[in-house]
Design a protein around this nucleic acid. Structure first.
Length: 496
RNA sequence: GUUCCCAUCGUCUAGUGGCCUAGGACAGCGCCCUUUCACGGCGCCGACAGGGGUUCGACUCCCCUUGGGAACGCCA
């Protein structure tokens, strides 16, 4: 960074009205990565200027989700900072003063039009296929008249006075020059009748006050930007660099929504995705380092992240690839990493966590993690470590629990009962010898054993599995399965 | 209706005028490894939306068309 360039300062500015959507999370990630990469600051600012939609719970969850993703802010709620407060609802005097300045400078004016009149106006315009836009009725009100009406206690808003002529041009970092004719921009509300600012005023005032250098936000803000630029000019402030991020779409082309499955960060956490996976995956939606790297840990992302390479094209969220990436993290994360994550899940599934040692949990995890894609897989495909299987995979039962299987399982059981020890090597040798003496293939022994011991047609290497389970459990399960086959009472289940 | 944005395999993308017979990844398919499932390896399938320019030369630059998306609130 050259000494003349100001320190990079970016913000994530959500409104606490709901859960953290993956699109919002991606915006936060890009801001965070950019700040880290540039050695700058990442701030969190809460845009709570809509009193009717404020939701305390949403705020708490929002911050928890950001922290879960590892996106800590250096200024904002909880941590404070030189530009506190970071809640817009606590900065009202600033916005009111700013609005006053604009009115005094002839860049804004009080408007006495009611919501009812605005609704009617819009209705009429829509009906006549006209662009919907405020008709500027109060714009020409003499200042004295306006003052009288205000003094009389009439409710009013402050509107931006957009020039009739000329164009407002600004530069979007990703798209280049964007040009709007001023005549199609309407005079938007800056200050509401309740004295609260709208997003437009608040965001301009705060971004300036907080010395924000780059505004990275969703591209739904592009149409509002020229009006923001008009305000920056009216204040005599230098506008920040605008980086409008494309949206994230669902596989059907529309917006990602709860209705179509998962849409929030919390949804994906509940589905068993790791925060690293989410950050890695989301950072790849609309950005690529330029080479072929895709698996990138946080520090790698920070090192490589570059806003020049952000794509202006909207991207589709592909859950299949997310799952693959999660599996890549599962492969690389340690057993110790998973222990506190997975143990409670097994407990929730009815396993008494005190009935097994942590070492036993570790063994189960080490045998399962490399073939799992999501956290719930440990439960879905690993319960047999703690509980005897009661049902057996249907397809596999048809194949491996046939006539003669009873005898086979009993033979195996007897051999295992008298095995010198239960080490994997011993077990493998024993199976090989047994197969040979029976004149069959190893698989003909291994598959029925796996099914009897786990109930599933797939899983860890059988000898490691048996070793982990221990002789007693294996023998008991083989006997149970053999008996069930003999009695024709094998209960089957369809495994995913 | 008005305005704005976007456009490479099904999906995420590389590509910034010749390196492109367009590269990688996910998904799908096949083979290999293997006791299974995953992992891994090898291979197959598969794209520059269309039309005009500019240029000796366009995936790359410009225009139009088409398609997709967004905004038009005293919500953000």
């Amino acid at each position: 960074m050259t000494s003349s360039a100001p320190r990079v300062r970016v913000r994530f500015a959500p409104s606490p009205t709901g859960y953290l959507h993956v699109g919002g999370a991606r915006t936060a990630i890009f801001n965070w990565l950019f700040a880290k990469h540039m050695g700058g600051d990442f701030l969190l600012r809460i845009e709570d200027t809509d009193q009717t939609r404020y939701d305390e719970k949403a705020l708490v969850e929002l911050m928890a989700d950001l922290k879960w993703l590892g996106l800590q802010w250096v200024e904002g709620p909880e941590v404070g900072g030189p530009h506190a407060p970071y809640f817009q609802s606590q900065r009202l005097p600033m916005y009111q003063a700013a609005a006053k300045t604009l009115v005094a400078g002839g860049h804004a004016y009080p408007c006495f039009c009611t919501t009812e009149r605005m609704d009617e106006l819009r209705e009429t315009q829509k009906r006549n296929n006209l662009p919907t836009c405020y008709d500027r009725r109060c714009r020409t009100l003499p200042p004295e008249t306006a003052q009288e009406r205000i003094a009389a206690g009439e409710k009013y808003t402050i509107r931006l006075k957009v020039p009739f002529q000329g164009n407002t041009v600004f530069k979007d970092f990703l798209r280049g020059t964007i040009d709007y004719q001023n005549r199609i921009l309407d005079d938007m509300v800056l200050l509401k009748t309740d004295g609260f600012p709208t997003y437009h005023l608040a965001n301009v005032v705060d971004d300036h006050d907080m010395r924000i250098t780059h505004v990275m936000r969703g591209d739904e803000w592009i149409p509002s930007t020229p009006r923001h630029v008009i305000m920056y000019n009216a204040f005599g402030w230098e506008p920040p660099t605008f980086v409008h991020l494309p949206v994230i779409l669902s596989p059907d082309g529309g917006k990602l929504s709860k209705r179509k499955g998962a849409a929030s960060v919390g949804d994906y956490r509940d589905l068993g995705y790791l925060p690293e996976t989410m950050v890695n995956f989301l950072s790849l939606l609309g950005w690529a380092p330029g080479d072929d790297q895709e698996f990138m840990e946080m520090d790698k992302l920070v090192e490589l992240f570059n806003i020049e390479k952000i794509n202006a094209k909207s991207a589709v969220f592909d859950e299949k690839k997310l799952e693959w990436l999660n599996g890549q993290y599962f492969l690389r994360r340690s057993v110790e990493y998973f222990l506190p994550l997975v143990k409670p899940m097994w407990a929730a599934a009815g396993i008494d966590p005190n009935a097994f040692s942590d070492d036993y949990f570790r063994t189960a995890i080490s045998l399962l993690k490399d073939r799992s894609k999501r956290l719930p897989d440990f439960v879905a495909y690993g319960m047999y470590f703690f509980r005897e299987p009661e049902t057996f995979d249907e397809k596999s039962s048809k194949k491996h629990f046939g006539p003669g299987s009873e005898k086979l399982l009993n033979t195996l059981r007897e051999a295992l009962e008298s095995a010198p020890d239960f080490e994997t090597g011993t077990l493998e040798t024993l199976y090989k010898a047994t197969a040979e003496s029976l004149g069959i293939k190893g698989g003909d022994l291994i598959h029925p054993t796996r099914l009897a011991v786990s109930g599933l047609p797939f899983g860890p290497g059988l000898f490691e599995l048996m070793h982990a389970l221990g002789r007693e459990a294996v023998v008991r399960r083989l006997r149970f399965a053999a008996d069930a086959i003999a009695n024709g009472q094998v209960r089957t289940a369809v495994t995913a």
